[in-house]
Design a protein around this nucleic acid. Structure first.
Ligand SMILES: [Mn+2]
Ligand SMILES: [Mn+2]
Ligand SMILES: [Zn+2]
Ligand SMILES: [Zn+2]
Lengths: 140, 140
DNA sequence: TTGCATATTTGAACTCATTACAAATTTATA
DNA sequence: TATAAATTTGTAATGAGTTCAAATATGCAA
C-alpha cells in the first residue's frame, strides 16, 4: 500500500485514489486481467470510476514502464504489473496466462541483427497442466 | 503456383481461385500483412473478392496450420505464411516485422512445467536497423 | 444434359475493445 | 478566495473482426 504509493511516486505519477486503486488491484491479482476485468473489480471499491479512467491509467502506467501489455489472445489486451521481466504460457482451453521463467542467453542481448531491442516477448500457447488433467479424467 | 496448389491440396483445401489468389499474395509478400492489406492487394487481381472471404480464408488456413497469426502490434492481427517456425522483430517506429532466427534449446521442448506446448511465439520490439540509421542522420 | 445437394462467396448488419473528446470535477498555486 | 492545471467522467466515434442469410458456383447422380 505504502509500497504502491512509492512505486507511483518513483515514476512521477501522483498517487490519486483511482490510480492507487487500479494499481492495487493489479498488485493483488497477478492473473493478467483485461481492462474490462480491472474495471469490473475496481468499480466495486470505487463506484464512480469510469472505464475511460481505467484505460487512461493503464496507458499512463505503460508509458512509465510499470505495466506491460500482453498481446496474446488476439481479442483483447491483458495487463501485467511485473517487477521482473518474465515470459508466459497461454492456455487455449481455459484462457489462463501463467508466468514462466525462461532462461536463455539470447534474451540478454541489447541488439539483434542491428535492431535495438526495447522489449522481449515470449509466450507459449497450448493446453495447461490443469486442463490436461481434466481431459484425462473425462476420457476415463 | 503449381507449388501452392499442392500446398492447399495437402491440407485438403480445394484450390479455388480466391483461396489460391490469397495464398499467392502471402507467398510473394512475406511482410506479415494485415487482413486489410491482403484485401487491398488481392482485390486488384480479383475485383469481386470480399473482405469476408479474406477473413474466412485466413481462418481456414490457420486451422489447417499453413498460416500463423501474429498478435504483436495490439491493434490488428498480422499473418505469416511460414514454412519453418521462426521468430520476429517488430519496429515500433515503422511498423515493419522482420523474421529472426533465434536458436535456443528451450524452444525444442514439448512440455514446459507440465503444460503442453502447441505453439511458440517470440518477438522482440524496438527500433529497427533502418530506423536507427535515419535517426542518426537526422541528428547530424 | 438436367436437377439437386453441397460448398463457397458475398454484402450488410452487428459486436465489442479501444479511442477521442469535451464537459465536469478535483487539486494545486498564487 | 480566485485562477490555472490536472484528473475524471460519459458519450460518441472508430475500426478490426464476426455473424448470417442470400446469392453463386461446383459436384454428382439420374
Ligand atoms: Mn506475467
Ligand atoms: Mn515471419
Ligand atoms: Zn487451461
Ligand atoms: Zn523501423
Amino acid at each position: 500500500m505504502q509500497n504502491l504509493k512509492k512505486i507511483l511516486e518513483n515514476v512521477e505519477i501522483k498517487p490519486t485514489y483511482e490510480w492507487l486503486s487500479i494499481l492495487q488491484y493489479l498488485d493483488k491479482n497477478h492473473n493478467h486481467p483485461t481492462a474490462a476485468m480491472i474495471f469490473d473489480e475496481v468499480v466495486k471499491k470505487v463506484p464512480t470510476i469510469s472505464k475511460t479512467t481505467v484505460y487512461n491509467s493503464l496507458k499512463l502506467f505503460m508509458k512509465k514502464g510499470i505495466v506491460t501489455p500482453l498481446y496474446i489472445t488476439g481479442s483483447e489486451v491483458r495487463y501485467d504489473f511485473a517487477q521482473k521481466p518474465h515470459h508466459h504460457f497461454f492456455c487455449e482451453e481455459c484462457g489462463k496466462i501463467y508466468d514462466l521463467e525462461v532462461e536463455c542467453p539470447i534474451f540478454k542481448q541489447k541488439y539483434f541483427h542491428g535492431h535495438l531491442i526495447r522489449q522481449q516477448h515470449v509466450y507459449f500457447r497450448g493446453i495447461c497442466k490443469d486442463c490436461l488433467k481434466k481431459e484425462n479424467k473425462a476420457h476415463h
